[in-house]
Amino acid sequence: MKKLIIALAMIFGLSLNNNATEERKDGETLTLRQQKLVAISSLTAKGDLGQLKTAIEGALVSGLTVNEIKEAIVQLYAYCGFPRSIRGLQTFTGVLDARKARGITDKRGQEATPVHSNRSKYDRGKAILEKLTGAPETGPKTGYAAFAPEIEVFLKEHLFADIFERDVLSYADRELVTVAVLTSIGGVEPMLRSHLNICLNVGLSPGQLQQFVGLINQSIGKKEADAAHIVLNEVLKSRK
């Protein structure tokens, strides 16, 4: 019965948690589209393919395009690996095939705009990261970037140029996808802290991020939501 209730909530956007979808005092809530991206991303990262089917079905019903959903699931591999991302894509194609068999044609949506630039991918990725964090990427490398400079190059060239530069999803969309994955896999609180700060930098509000935590509680579980709540509170306090 519980799974049935969760399934109906994912399809029709119903609330199972007051923190997830209620109208907040500040009037700032995630859009239904954003809520669906969070559910899809978190369930893909967790590997809950049964609930993922339901979440994808609900996202399509609510108006997300095939390319928007596909873009989110593809992005996940950079944070939780190819196996989870590919299983998500396989689940997605299964949902699309089943809907097509029922006579439903889903909207493909916008394709990524080709990038024409004389700048290197490293420089483009660096510029995007600076825009996201609001901080210049200058000075000597420290920490993991100094220890393994190769991964710092991969990060800028691939994640922030090859992926974040694609305009099917906005920076805010991509950051919601990212924090959904990081919260779901757990044990990566420093990265979650960084990306929650980026969420605020790209226009998401504290109220929307509190709602995000409620959505994680709804789709993944209390343990993951509680851990994210602690990190979010730390981030909000540090910005006062």
Rank of each mutant, 00 (worst) to 15 (best):
I104K: 14
G63Q: 07
A161G: 00
N19W: 13
L14S: 06
S120K: 09
P83C: 08
D167I: 05
T142R: 05
T105D: 15
V231I: 15
Y122F: 15
L52G: 11
G94V: 07
A78P: 00
C80W: 02
R87A: 13
T54R: 09
G50V: 10
I6Y: 10
R193Q: 12
T142V: 12
A146D: 10
F164D: 06
K2T: 10
L209C: 05
K121T: 12
Y122D: 09
E71V: 06
P149C: 04
R119N: 10
L196C: 03
I40V: 15
D97A: 14
L14G: 08
V179C: 09
F82D: 05
L89T: 00
E189Q: 13
L96A: 07
N233G: 14
I69A: 07
Y79I: 08
G50C: 06
M191E: 15
R102M: 14
E111H: 14
Q208N: 04
H116R: 08
A112E: 11
K237L: 14
A227N: 13
L52M: 13
S85M: 06
K100L: 14
E137A: 14
V213M: 05
G13E: 07
V177A: 08
F82H: 10
L132H: 01
L8D: 09
V177M: 10
F82I: 13
F160Q: 05
N233P: 01
K100H: 11
R174G: 03
F160A: 06
D106P: 00
P149N: 05
P83G: 07
N197W: 04
L196F: 11
V38S: 02
A172I: 05
T21G: 15
P149H: 02
I185A: 07
G221Y: 01
T105R: 10
L200K: 08
I5T: 10
L14W: 08
M10K: 09
